[in-house]
Design a protein around this nucleic acid. Structure first.
Length: 406
DNA sequence: AGTCCACAGGAAGGGCAGGCGA
DNA sequence: TCGCCTGCCCTTCCTGTGGACT
């Protein structure tokens, strides 16, 4: 019987002073290299402080370029300034990846204005138009301006909600609203209803990716709060910044790298974070990413992937036909229906696009044209597949002999 | 030069699930 | 609740292809 498993662990010396500032959800007080965007957004929303309607804004930028941080930062300031000037300003933040239907967006926004628990709109049950009129009523009562941020707005199911929100101002009396849509998909607006498109895109803000130097500043700023300076080796921050800049200037990735590096250093009982911890963190993050992709793959793709792994262990220059033979065996063993080779070829292409395998077309002359396939991800993914309940039993499985050549 | 292999990959269409309006 | 629509997954059928072999 193990008693008190946390005994001794709670007081272990920690490298972190404040780990929370490295989390993606944290909104810093200083946003380096985003002065221009902050100024622009502030000037767009400034009319709110005079009780006038600010324009709707569409913010575009790749992940980790500070869109959300800037929006939240401005929102906080707006509400504070409003209090100072005695103007009622409200700021509602919705992440559309989590809240993705018309009803739930309306419900969330409405509930932001309702302070009494019993009066809140329930998760389900009300007709959508009733929630809408409750929202109008609630905003109306504030007699002020409400800024509604829809983060990852491209994840919304249907654009009706955008249309409804954008026409809120026509249904409101004294109160006013402004919508800020945030997306990392520039093409998103192309598919919108033209009315919504023109309404949402009154103002457009583009957030460019950070350069390696800029990421250094951002990390430095956060690191000041997160660590005691002597806990970090001088090379750690530049390395994290350089690795993240290689991707697409993603600050979130840079912060993740720094945090995971420090966690690894801490767990291995070291006093300082060193360059090699960053390298280990890079591998760990990559493995986590691939593991997650593999774990959530549909069963047929998992079996194809397993066939590739087994094939690579037994064959030289694995081809589509060989993978298909192994795949068929695995399906038979697991009692799973067998797809056609045409379909499996497409699944192989999909795995290739996900970066889990490499498949390149080669011509073997007399012996036909095919794809040569190899695993591109760490071999640990085999464990992930084997742990899957739906996978066929591989006990004592031997793939068919390599068909030709060699 | 022509043949032939082992596929790649496009096109068309069937079957099914889920969403939506009447 | 029903019928319609849409999107997705999949099959079937087909044409195209690079290079070793004849």
């Amino acid at each position: 019987m193990i008693k008190d498993v946390f005994q001794g662990l709670e007081s272990v010396a920690t490298i972190f002073k404040n780990k929370e500032v490295l989390r993606p959800s944290y909104v810093p007080d200083i946003l380096p290299h985003r002065k221009k965007q902050i100024k622009e957004l502030a000037s767009i929303l400034a009319p709110a402080l005079r009780g006038e309607t600010p324009s709707n804004v569409f913010i575009y930028g790749k992940t980790g370029t500070g869109k959300t941080a800037v929006a939240k930062f401005i929102g906080k300031q707006l509400v504070e300034k409003g209090k100072e000037l005695n103007v009622n300003t409200n700021f509602v933040y919705i992440n559309c990846e989590i809240v993705d239907t018309q009803y739930r967006v309306l419900q969330n926004v409405t509930n932001h204005f309702i302070k009494v628990w019993d009066d809140r709109v329930p998760f389900t049950g009300w007709p959508t138009d009733e929630v809408y009129s409750r929202l109008i009523h609630s905003i109306e009562r504030t007699k002020g301006v409400a800024v509604i941020v829809l983060d990852e707005v491209d994840k919304l199911k249907g654009d009706e909600i955008l249309y409804n929100l954008s026409r809120l101002n026509y249904d409101l009396g004294r109160a006013r609203t402004s919508i800020i849509g945030i997306s990392n998909d520039l093409k998103f607006t192309e598919f919108l209803d033209p009315r919504v498109k023109s309404s949402l895109g009154e103002e457009n803000l583009i957030f460019p990716p950070y350069s390696a130097d800029e990421l250094c500043d951002i990390l430095g700023e956060r690191a000041k709060q997160a660590f005691d300076p002597k806990r970090l080796d001088g090379q750690v921050i530049p390395l994290c910044a350089a690795l993240a800049a290689q991707e697409h200037g993603d600050a979130r990735r840079a912060l993740d790298l720094l945090r995971v590096s420090a966690e690894i250093a801490e767990r291995s009982g070291e006093e300082r974070v060193l360059e090699r911890h960053v390298r280990m963190a890079e591998n760990k993050i990559e493995l986590d990413r691939v593991t997650e992709i593999v774990r959530t793959l549909p069963i047929q793709s998992k079996i194809v992937l397993m066939a590739v792994i087994i094939g690579e262990e037994h064959y030289e220059g694995l081809t589509t036909g060989e993978v298909y033979n192994i795949y068929r065996d695995l399906c038979k063993r697991g009692g799973i229906n067998i797809l056609t080779q045409r379909r499996v070829a497409d699944l192989i292409s999909e795995l290739d696009m996900l970066g889990i395998i490499n498949a390149r077309i080669v011509s073997k002359g007399r012996y036909g044209r095919t794809r040569e396939i190899e695993i591109a991800a760490p071999m640990k993914i085999k464990d992930v597949l084997e742990r899957d309940d739906a996978m066929p039993d591989l006990e004592a499985y031997k793939p068919p002999l390599q068909s030709k050549l060699l």
